[in-house]
């Protein structure tokens, strides 16, 4: 945003924070990034049946520069891990991460040499959505949790990187 820098510490800060958080929480744009079968469950959340547009998150951005939310949808292999991290680092602050499904959260059934045992080993995760794979409604609930989290945030939670 940048508004908070120009305004400094004046009396408007509290309400500005509220307004900015309101705007941010209702325009959480996810990154177009699917890794496995969870991506198939992630796609229909923007379809007419589930219609995430009602909550402002329907715009899947094809560039990490324009995305606010990284949905890690699927198992992360050790070979893919550096690229997941790179995508996360390319996203502009503020940014949030949903770990979708059992594999992204803890490796799921893939307890072996090839799969990262949870994406939280390489990037910070805000919300874990359980399931194998989670229902699209469950993923929407995860996005609502992100919205709740955003509404309680302070400007200082997101230092400019």
């Amino acid at each position: 945003m940048g508004l908070e820098h120009q305004l400094g510490d004046n009396i408007l800060t509290t309400s500005l924070e509220w307004a900015v958080n309101w705007a941010r929480s209702n325009s959480v744009w996810p990154m177009t990034f699917g890794l496995a079968c969870c991506a198939i469950e992630m796609m229909p959340i923007v379809s007419p049946r589930y219609d995430l547009a009602r909550f402002g998150s329907e715009v899947y951005r094809a560039s990490p520069r324009q995305a606010d939310l990284l949905i890690v949808a699927g198992r992360v292999s050790r070979k893919m891990a550096p690229f997941v991290k790179q995508v996360y680092e390319q996203m502009m602050s503020p940014k949030w991460v949903i770990s979708m499904g059992a594999c992204a959260s803890c490796g799921g059934v893939f307890r072996n040499y090839a799969i990262l045992q949870g994406v939280d080993k390489i990037i910070p995760v805000d919300v874990y959505v359980p399931g194998c794979p989670p229902n699209p409604y469950a993923l929407m609930q995860g996005i609502f949790e992100i919205q709740k989290k955003i509404k309680g945030e302070k400007f200082t939670d997101h230092p400019y990187e």
């Binding site: 050790r78 072996n112 040499y113 045992q117």
Partner: peptide
């Protein structure tokens, strides 16, 4: 072809441990 270039060992050999990193948790 499939494993990372710096990977050590050949994972489908019987002698290869399931999780060469010990608990599968070190990355």
């Amino acid at each position: 072809l499939m494993m990372p270039d710096e990977y050590e060992g050949f994972p489908l050999l019987k002698a290869h441990p399931l999780c060469p990193q010990g608990d599968c948790n070190d990355f």
